[in-house]
Design a protein around this nucleic acid. Structure first.
Lengths: 171, 171
DNA sequence: CCTCCTTGGCTAACGGCGTTAGCTAGACAG
DNA sequence: CTGTCTAGCTAACGCCGTTAGCCAAGGAGG
């Protein structure tokens, strides 16, 4: 079901809407509009909206995994710093998708097997201790989501905060 | 408007709904039901739903500030550890309110002046360097929100991750 | 005492949401 | 030619936040 051509078009339309107009625009009716059809017709291809969102989340996780793998490959000396920079860069480039990927519980049963693990792998390899790896992940996610949500003071320069955090965890 | 008795009842009903049934239950109609009135009547007391939510956010921030201040007062030797524990404890005790407080942009224009600063003050005092303070905040928020959203493996013991993170930032 | 205005309810309704039921035109297989 | 499946459609349901407009009760001023 998920890789039939029409289904791909639906996911593409959904992604375009999400990335350009944000989560509020990600509506079954708006998706259908983009394809010149009516909202109920979407249910011939996906059981519900959550299934469409799950495809977007899967795309995001895969792209995030790619970015992380590329980052460690490019800078093997400082894997943590490279990972952090790549993580932040992807999130800022796709803020709405990043929020969709990370806000609320993951619909794990709708995601390809092993995808979540693949996205986590670069960090797990760079930080073998699992507790430390979780701490680093929490730091990176916290930095990104607070930045995306405008929680830091508007004039705050976040580069030093990233540097301090990454340096702290690197020792 | 915000401290008239009827307005207080509305906010109390909203909080009860949010804490016991989650964000989906926080509905103008459900709030009104609790008070035995109809939803449109709520608009005689608040201009819109966001204003009610802002009151809840203000409550949460104030309570969080109280908890943090009490934590450093009780354990002045290890302020960071005390702050982290109090932060996590409050978030886990009020998961839906914590999400409301921290998800998406803050409606700053609807919050009492200085409240946001007061909530941040204990951490700022414990960690004088602003960049480091932001990094610690990001870590704590990341840990909490990932835990609330079930993003860590279900059997993960998060105490060690907190310890590692807090110890790392304490040095 | 009567009148007027404010307060805080009400019903009806609008446009949006996700979703379901039920219909149908067309393609394609036997 | 007939039957079946695909993928569209309209109509509708029950939610949502919100607005318009009406009205009863009560207090203030003459």
């Amino acid at each position: 079901m998920a890789d039939r051509p029409r289904s791909r078009q639906i996911v593409d339309a959904a992604r375009e809407l999400l990335e350009t107009e944000g989560a509020d625009a990600l509506t079954m009716r708006r998706i259908a509009d983009r394809l010149g059809i009516r909202a109920p017709s979407l249910y011939k291809h996906f059981p519900d909206k959550q299934a469409v969102e799950a495809e977007l989340i899967a795309q995001g996780l895969a792209e995030m995994a790619d970015a992380q793998e590329a980052a460690v490959a490019a800078e093997p000396g400082q894997p943590l710093v490279a990972l952090g920079a790549a993580y932040r860069e992807y999130a800022l480039a796709h803020p709405h998708l990043y929020r969709l990927m990370t806000a609320g519980p993951l619909p794990r049963h709708l995601l390809p097997d092993g995808l979540e693990a693949r996205a986590a792998l670069p960090l797990v390899k760079a930080v073998p201790d699992e507790h430390r790896a979780r701490a680093v992940w929490a730091f990176a996610h916290g930095m990104v989501i607070l930045e995306l949500d405008g929680r830091f003071p508007p004039d705050a320069d976040l580069d030093p905060a990233w540097r301090v955090g990454m340096a702290t965890f690197s020792t």
